[in-house]
Design a protein around this nucleic acid. Structure first.
Length: 766
DNA sequence: CAGTGGAGGCTTTTT
DNA sequence: GCCTCCACTG
């Protein structure tokens, strides 16, 4: 019985399963059976080594991966799999904080803020810190704060280690932002990790408990972990040092989210005796595809080479095709998919179209609709980000955590109750000056504000009245009082109702349902979404108050999507390259193979970023099992106007002999600087045409024209004016993906900026 | 207080 | 080119 856990594994896989003592690094190339190894390893630990599932922790990057792992393990070891700790870092930390948060002053009913909530709070913090959001984009500030948190830095340490004036400003916001979070009894996603680490570091006895519990720790997608996650894992593994990490640096595509490939190096340094097992056999792709991908990725300097191989030699050549624009690109995909499904035995569900940015899905979707091809768009607006869902969630959060002012301000006037922005602001200011929670302020208005004689002169917006009350006109106070009563009633309901009943109560008693159908467009669809939320809540209905609500809210905060990607046998998949990671398809179309898109313009200023783009390209190519198409358009309507675009540099990194109907040798060489210049203006560099491919000549000709006359040329030394940054001098101007990337040194505090000419709205000064 | 229009701003995305 | 946010008007 114990034998079958090892059966069917190749020698490397077998080693990765059997080496259980001490630290282990598994380097897992694409399609190397990684998931199989992980699940079999866990099964081996349990069934062969007799280790209790309670003492095994397996951490994954996404909920989906966690779910799949659990399902597979259930098949391998049965119901004992339920006792395993399998989940994401964030979920693990959320549970830890709920249980042990009291050690760091966090109430167990804390709220987890998502991106949108976080930005709301951050903007407030910026206002309080008196930092101009025009000069310091909140998004960028958020990025700096998040980056600091992922390195386990607090605002003080960010301030000390600042590398720029910008970071110094960010540190100021950070401090305020933390104060606001604390007042709201809220945490953001990064806090889950940061606070978990803080908690464990500052509470040795708590830490010891977990260290002794987890005899074996596994981390999947190790290349995607950030420093905080690695430190957390290291802390937990300190007792037994049975830590197994699985990853592939070549598939690291989340550095921009503070994932740090250097964790792999740190691992080898922190555990000098760590064993390394490389899974090099690829079971997914044809020899041709694997060869092309290997060749591409070998251009990266920051990597450890590994020798991937497959027994599936040869295979269909890769099709590289040029089209005029995105419309033609979509048309080509549709025609080709039609051919593959009607004549070559593929199913529609076998095919996927992958792209760099979501905006590219539009042309594809339109084409699918026009030609009547079934498709499945992955991603888009996520479920828990939809307004109606977030509104109802805000009510639920507020019931659970009355200190949550973000949620309170979100719903105090939804449905419309005549409580305007000014009233809310006044209320908040008043509550702060009195040092009372916002909810208490509401209740006070309900107690005495509502009945106050109308003869009282309203002092807008709020002012202190006698005995800690406030005086305001009934027009303002009545709806506020009404809202306070509503909330109080719902909090009482929550003590006796299960979560499903509670959701129903919220929908009815707040008047939300009525509001939706009376006043909101597409009410049916939105209602459907709310019913889906209600369906999710069913899972928690048996958990009595107040835990049911807390559990539901945790789930809603940590599980991003109900309709995560699921295979649909009869639809063409449209998906971003990022989301495609971990998936595989018999047929893959990669569209938008242009410099400026892949690699993306925003990555062109650093070699590291271009390398990440190359990895992204590598990830896309290695999703394919049988057929791979690389499409490139001469001209693409991209944000800000349409411009010609040169072929992706990555196309030149694929050997000729792997490409269908090889193009003339001369044009397949890496372009000379002159050619690169031409390419940037859309002058065709790839002249060859495959047999399947036809390009309408009359349209193609139109692309060979010169630069758009509308783009003014700027040269070094020119004086320019920018609407927000003010006056400055051009330092450099280089063509970039059909645009110009202009570097400008501004006179004021703005410093040196890199701008895209078509976005920047620069005025040339005589 | 609430609905409308103009201006500005633009990857990738899970938790 | 399209969506989002803010400012203004009704």
């Amino acid at each position: 019985m114990n034998v079958d856990v090892l059966q069917g594994l190749n020698p490397a896989q077998r080693e990765a399963v059997e080496v259980i003592d001490g630290p282990l690094l598994i380097v897992a190339g694409p399609g190397s059976g990684k998931t199989r190894v992980i699940t079999h390893r866990v099964a081996y630990l349990m069934r062969v080594c007799g280790i209790s599932p309670y003492r095994i922790l397996a951490v994954t990057f996404t909920n989906k991966a966690a779910r799949e792992m659990k399902e597979r393990l259930q098949r391998l070891v049965g119901t004992r799999a339920d006792q395993l700790s399998v989940g994401t870092f964030h979920a693990f930390c959320a549970a830890l904080l709920r249980r042990e948060g009291k050690h760091i002053g966090l109430d167990s009913s804390y709220t987890i803020y998502d991106d949108e909530d976080q930005m709301n709070l951050l903007k407030q913090a910026m206002e309080q810190a008196d930092i101009d959001p025009r000069r310091y984009p909140p998004r960028a500030i958020q990025g700096v704060i998040s980056g600091a948190k992922c390195l386990l830095m607090d605002s003080h340490s960010l301030s000390l280690n600042r590398k720029s004036y910008f970071e110094e400003q960010a540190a100021k916001v950070y401090q305020r932002y933390e104060e606001l979070l604390a007042r709201n009894n809220g945490v953001d996603f990064d806090d889950l990790l940061l606070k978990a680490v803080q908690l464990l570091r500052n509470n040795p006895e708590v830490l010891k408990g977990y260290q002794r519990r987890f005899l074996h720790i596994l981390i999947d997608e190790f290349q995607d972990t950030n420093v905080a996650q690695y430190v957390l894992a290291k802390l937990l593994a300190e007792e037994y040092k049975n830590i197994c990490v699985v990853g592939d640096a070549d598939q690291s595509i989340y550095a921009w989210r503070h994932a740090d490939i250097r964790n792999i190096l740190s691992f080898q340094k922190d555990y000098p005796n760590a064993r390394t097992v490389t899974l090099a056999e690829n079971y997914r792709s044809t020899g041709t595809i694997l060869e092309a991908a290997k060749h591409l990725i070998s251009s990266n300097r920051m990597r450890l080479a590994k020798d991937l191989w497959t027994s599936r030699e040869g295979g269909h050549p890769i099709v590289v095709h040029e089209v005029h624009d995105e419309e033609e690109e979509a048309q080509f995909v549709i025609r080709e998919v039609g051919h593959l499904t009607s004549a070559e035995g593929f199913n529609l569900g076998d095919c996927a179209v992958m792209y760099r940015v979501n905006a590219q899905s539009r042309a594809l979707e339109e084409a699918c609709l026009r030609y009547g091809m079934r498709y499945k768009l992955v991603g888009g607006v996520r479920f828990y980000q939809r307004r109606e869902v977030k509104d109802v969630m805000a009510y639920l959060r507020l019931i659970s955590n009355p200190n949550d002012e973000v949620s309170l301000t979100r719903v105090i006037n939804v449905p419309l109750r005549g409580i305007g922005q000014r009233s809310v602001e006044g209320l908040i200011r008043w509550a702060r000056s009195e040092g009372i929670p916002l909810l208490t302020a509401l209740e006070r208005v309900a107690q005495d504000g509502g009945d106050r004689a109308s003869g009282n002169p309203p002092i807008p917006p709020f002012s202190k009245g006698g005995s800690g009350g406030i005086s305001l006109s009934p027009r303002v106070s009545r709806p506020i009082a009404g809202f306070a009563r509503l909330l109080k009633g719902l909090v009482e309901d929550s003590r006796r109702l299960n979560v499903v009943e509670l959701i129903d109560a919220v929908l009815e008693r707040t008047g939300y349902r009525q509001y939706l159908f009376d006043r909101v467009e597409m009410a049916e669809e939105r209602w459907e979404n709310l019913m889906e939320l209600r369906a999710t809540a069913q899972e928690f209905r048996h958990i009595g108050p107040p835990d049911g609500l807390a559990d539901l809210l945790e789930r809603l905060a940590l599980v991003a999507d109900v309709d995560n990607y699921e295979e649909s046998p009869d639809a063409l998949t449209l998906i971003t390259l990022h989301q495609a990671k971990g998936l595989e398809f018999p047929v893959v179309f990669m569209v938008g193979m242009e410099d400026g898109l892949l690699p993306h313009v925003r990555s062109l200023d650093s070699a590291e970023q271009v390398e990440e783009e190359r990895r992204l390209c590598y990830v896309g190519m290695t999703r394919s099992k049988e057929r791979l198409y690389l499409l490139r358009a001469f001209r693409r309507g991209f944000s800000g106007g349409s411009g010609p675009a040169g072929p992706s540099r990555f196309l030149y990194e694929i050997p000729d002999h792997l490409i269908a109907s090889p193009t003339p040798k001369a044009s397949r060489k890496r372009p000379s600087p002159r050619q690169a210049q031409d390419a940037a203006w859309g002058i065709p560099a790839l002249l060859g045409e495959g047999p399947v491919l036809s390009r309408s000549p009359e349209r193609s000709e139109g692309t060979a024209e010169g630069p758009e006359p509308s783009l003014p040329s700027l040269k070094t030394g020119d004086k320019v004016r920018h609407p927000t940054f003010g006056d400055g001098m051009v330092v450099s101007s280089v063509p970039s993906g059909g645009d110009y990337e202009v570097t400008v040194a501004f006179d004021g505090g703005a410093g040196v900026k890199r701008l895209l000419l078509s976005y920047a709205n620069l005025e040339k000064l005589g």
